[in-house]
Structures are given as C-alpha cells and as structure tokens.
C-alpha cells in the first residue's frame, strides 16, 4: 500500500512506554506533517531517546500506536524513507578503519537491497552528498582523522544519501564545536527549503536549536506542544520553569 500524500509522516496515538515499573512516556499524542521542522526538548531522563527509539521501531510501545507514512509500524518496510543520525558520542566510531566514502555509502544499504552491489549511480550519489556537507577533500580519508564536527557531517551525509523524506536527529550537536553547529543548522535549513525534507531534532540544547526549528515541543514523560518556535523563544524561560523547575535553567541560559 502506498502512503497517501495527506498522511502524517509520523503519528503517535496514546503511546505509553513503561520500563519495568517506571513509566517513561505517558499518553504521547504527536504527529509530524510533511515539511515540519520540529524540535523536541527535554532534560536527560525525560524520555527523549525512548521516544526516538519507539518511532524508529527499535523499541516496542507498551500501549498505543505508532504510524509511519500512514502505515502501522509493524507493517512499515520502507525504511529508506527515514534518515537517522544518532547521538555521536554514543557511537565512538573514530577508530574504525573506514573512509568517509565507505561510511556514507553504507547509508545506501537498505535502499539498494540485499544481494545487490552498489553501481555507478550510487557512487555518484555518495560523492554528491559528501560535497553537499562540504567534505569532498576528506572523501578518501579515514574517519579517524576527522574532527568532531566533520564526523557529524559524515553521519548526516550517510543519512541523506538514500534521499529520505524524514530526517531524525538525536542530540546532533553534542561534542560539536560552536562554529560547526552554525554550519550544521544552515545545512538543515537548506535541506528543508530546497528538498522539502521533514525533520525532527531531539535535543537538550534548548538555546540554539529553538532558533532554527519552526515547532517546539517539550518532553517530560508527557509531551507538551508550544506551537511555533517564535512563541517558544519569547516565553521559553517561563515555559521551561513551569515544566521542569530549576533543573533546566543551566541548559537554557547558555545561548
């Protein structure tokens, strides 16, 4: 069944997630429309990673339904429509003996399919994407020789190479220097504007991210939408204070 255009890209209905006795996510209702650029903020332990894993099918929801492109998660097979950039610190890939080219090409694994080898057009696509993230000079370098910001761009290129319709980024700016963060959001903005890509960023870095996204939601076991990023930016000290108490202040003040 092909997804209809009007279907939400992601739709969570009354989703609960419980780990042993602890309720990690409570009654999450959330949908992502085409072209949305949504930021989900929340402190550590608020259930951000869990939410992300649920909608990538890495964890099963305790209750409720998750739909991707109009199909329930259990029937969804079109994984190349989704590009995923994981938290970099968790990866620790620096020592792996692979080049930028090899890592980016691995993003095509699902799209090309089992038993098929990469062809000329695939290699060309890899080079295009690497150019887009500005790493053409590093194409055949081992990833161990790259800086944190460059490695981050390699992972974005890997997620983009299969031409996904939805890009999901988990804490994309952790371990990335200030200048690279600017470049990184510029890149996301151009992807949204030129390719109409739907994007979702999960981060605890409230300050920088909320300046770029156009919708903000706060997560603390439950999800609270706060409409446009513009509204959020004006009231965010108050909103965060209400939601999280003092614990978030440290994070919110470094922009």
């Amino acid at each position: 069944m092909k997804a209809k255009h009007e279907d939400a890209v992601v739709k969570l209905t009354s989703v609960f997630f419980q780990y042993e006795e602890k309720v990690v996510l409570e009654n999450i209702n959330f949908s992502l429309e085409r072209g949305d650029f949504v930021g989900i903020v929340g402190p550590n332990g608020s259930g951000k990673s869990t939410l992300m894993k649920l909608l990538l099918g890495l964890l099963p929801a305790t209750k409720g339904t998750v739909e991707l492109f109009g199909q329930p998660l259990s029937k969804f097979r079109d994984w190349s429509k989704i590009g995923y950039v994981a938290q970099q610190v968790a990866h620790g890939a620096g020592g792996f003996p692979a080049t930028v080219r090899e890592v980016v090409a691995s993003g095509l694994v699902g799209k090309v399919g089992l038993f098929r080898r990469l062809q000329g057009k695939h290699h060309q696509k890899v080079e295009e994407v690497v150019e887009r993230v500005g790493l053409t000079e590093k194409l055949d370098q081992r990833i161990g020789n790259l800086s944190g910001g460059q490695l981050q761009r390699v992972f974005i290129a890997r997620a983009l190479v299969a031409e996904p319709e939805l890009l999901i980024l988990d804490e994309p700016t952790v371990g990335v220097d200030q200048e690279s963060i600017e470049q990184f959001y510029e890149l996301l903005r151009s992807l949204k504007e030129e390719n109409g890509m739907t994007m979702m960023i999960v981060s605890h870095d409230v300050g920088v991210m909320t300046q770029w996204v156009n919708k903000v939601a706060c997560l603390q076991r439950k999800l609270h939408f706060h409409g446009s990023a513009h509204d959020f930016a004006h009231n965010h000290d108050k909103i965060l204070q209400q939601m999280y108490g003092d614990s978030i202040k440290m994070l919110a003040h470094h922009h």
Binding site: W79, H91, A98, A105, G110
Partner: peptide, 23 residues
C-alpha cells in the same frame, strides 16, 4: 561478495543498519 555492504553496515553501526531495514 553478495552481502559485503550489509556486513559492513552491521559491523560499523548495528543500530543504523537495523534502522535501515537490514536483517
């Protein structure tokens, strides 16, 4: 020869491979 790219993807980043739909 047949599943080099799958072997590479799983070895490099198992979670990403899984999200890409690799068995």
């Amino acid at each position: 020869f047949l599943i080099y790219k799958e072997l590479f993807a799983v070895s490099f980043d198992e979670e990403f491979a899984r999200v890409s739909g690799v068995a």
